[in-house]
Design a protein around this nucleic acid. Structure first.
Length: 194
DNA sequence: TATACGATCACCT
DNA sequence: GGTGATCGTATAC
């Protein structure tokens, strides 16, 4: 295995559910503008698949915001939500088919030791849990939307040697408006052995 | 041009 | 458990 090689576009040009599941245990790496490198193991994902998925932003057609999802896989799709938080997705499937995986949570972080030491354990555990939180800590904003995830971009995913001990599937969070599609078990949550 | 709302989080009780 | 913050986007006028 080559842990430092970013996952290639071919990894993401597959069925979104496969990508969402296989991203669990992989490491999201961010090289900050100041030169520091931070990272974390992906522990929670959600799949958003095509214009027929009412919960997917692409369901309402292509717009300036969502057109990235219609493009080639392996790129970031980042949007602002509730006026204050960013959500980081990775585009999947073939060019022309709108789909993406939302990265909802990270664990086993590297590069936050000093901050974490100042937090109570409960806060520390959920430090990178939640799409808004992880985007804030990783400095991911809409400037990344459309950017291919490569080492050059300073934001990429590498295959890590950490296999999830267990993966559970649940309905996606916060998509009640999507009718029957809100019930699809397209959220993946991994737990890891300590 | 105006308005309603969301793939959330933090803080309150 | 509940609610306020806060603004880009989509949609309605």
């Amino acid at each position: 295995m080559s842990p430092q090689i970013p996952l290639k576009r071919s990894f993401f040009s597959r069925p979104t559910l496969t990508v969402a599941r296989e991203l669990l245990g992989c490491r999201l790496v961010r090289r900050l503008p100041d030169g520091r490198t931070i990272s974390g193991i992906i522990s929670e994902t959600e799949a958003y698949i095509g214009q027929d998925d009412k919960a997917c932003h692409a369901a309402k057609g292509k717009t300036a915001r969502t057109e990235v999802m219609f493009g080639p896989p392996g790129r970031a799709y980042v949007y602002l939500i509730y006026g204050m938080y960013h959500c980081f997705n990775i585009v999947t499937e073939r060019d022309g088919f709108p789909a993406a995986v939302l990265i909802r949570g990270l664990t086993q972080s590297v590069g936050f030791e000093e901050v974490l030491a100042t937090l109570p354990p409960a806060k520390a555990r959920q430090f990178l849990s939640g799409p808004g939180r992880l985007c804030r800590e990783f400095g991911i904003t809409r400037e990344f939307s459309g950017v291919p995830l490569t080492a050059n971009a300073g934001l990429y995913v590498v295959k890590a040697s950490l296999e999830p001990a267990k993966i559970i599937q649940t309905p996606r969070i916060g998509v009640d408006y999507a009718g029957a599609d809100a019930l699809l078990p397209w959220r993946f949550v991994a737990s890891f052995n300590p």
